[in-house]
């Protein structure tokens, strides 16, 4: 069963992206693209003449996609949460390395910003894992899914995760790493055709990864998982539509300032039974 989910993960992510584009359009009073638009884009990209800057650049991009897929797979199979976070970090590092592997201004700026956003969210993800460990005494995702919902006692860490989500999904106000028209998509600027497809699909996987993290807080309650995912989904898109982009220094200050405070308070609370 798990294998099927892992194989389907990018497709589900694609559908989620399709739904999101419609929801966003509706929020703006538009009709929006068809649901399968992301897949149309993908098929079109397959049909382009292959162009690339250098093989290392392309290979690092493909590695980013594969590693992300593995990270998603590891969450689905229910291994160690901390390890999953590091595999996900490895994926981001492949992406940044690919950005730095060409002599392109935008790619470098994008990779640079991507790195700086890592400064903002990586400590938070680790502290979230720490919260689960303190509460349960294990990192195993499988056991977390079997346990009670932890949103009640880890709600401040959930708040920290809410700060991370727009960064990972490249949503306003934390989308400076991609900053579409400003730095032409950042890291992905030099990819084209079939090679761009890997980065495009990696974005879908990022959706799955983030929402699987959200589901962790629901424990064994399916109802709660559905409510959490849909409300976070709506909230993120609402905020995306309603806010402007903040600069990278502000992004780091906001995420680390609020996120670290919330996580540390929560850890103290859980660790000492307050």
């Amino acid at each position: 069963m798990n294998t099927v989910w892992i194989i389907l993960a990018p497709l589900i992510g694609g559908l989620l992206y399709g739904v999101e584009r419609i929801v966003r359009a509706r929020m703006q009073g538009r009709k929006g693209p068809p649901l399968l638009q992301p897949f149309y884009d993908m098929f079109k990209l397959l049909d382009k003449r292959p162009l690339l800057v250098n093989p290392a650049h392309v290979l690092l991009g493909i590695m980013h996609f594969i590693t992300l897929w593995i990270a998603v797979g590891l969450i689905i199979t229910g291994t160690n949460l901390l390890f999953v976070i590091f595999v996900h970090l490895l994926a981001s590092i492949f992406l940044v390395a690919s950005g730095f592997s060409v002599r392109s201004v935008y790619s470098h700026i994008g990779a640079n910003r991507e790195l700086l956003t890592m400064v903002a969210y990586e400590p938070l993800l680790i502290l979230i894992a720490a919260g689960f460990y303190l509460k349960n005494g294990y990192f195993s995702i499988e056991l977390i899914h079997e346990g009670e919902p932890l949103l009640g006692s880890l709600w401040m860490l959930f708040g920290a995760l809410l700060l991370v989500i727009p960064i990972k999904l490249k949503k306003s106000p934390f989308d400076a790493a991609e900053a579409h028209q400003e730095i032409v998509g950042g890291v992905e600027v030099e990819y084209s055709g079939v090679y761009f497809e890997f980065l495009y699909m990696a974005k879908w996987l990022e959706y799955i990864f983030v929402y699987l993290l959200v589901i962790l807080f629901a424990g064994n309650s399916v109802m709660m998982a559905i409510v959490l995912v849909s409300s976070v989904f709506l909230l993120v898109n609402l905020v995306d539509n309603a806010t402007a982009r903040v600069r990278i220094p502000h992004l780091i200050a906001i995420t680390l300032g609020i996120g670290l405070t919330l996580s540390i308070l929560n850890l103290i609370g859980v660790g000492y039974g307050l």
């Binding site: 003449r49 292959p50 162009l51 690339l52 800057v53 250098n54 093989p55 392309v58 060409v102 002599r103 392109s104 201004v105 935008y106 790619s107 032409v184 600027v189 030099e190 084209s192």
Partner: peptide, 10 residues
Amino acid sequence: LRSSERVGEY
């Protein structure tokens, strides 16, 4: 990746 043409950076 010989079948792919090389192109300059944007």
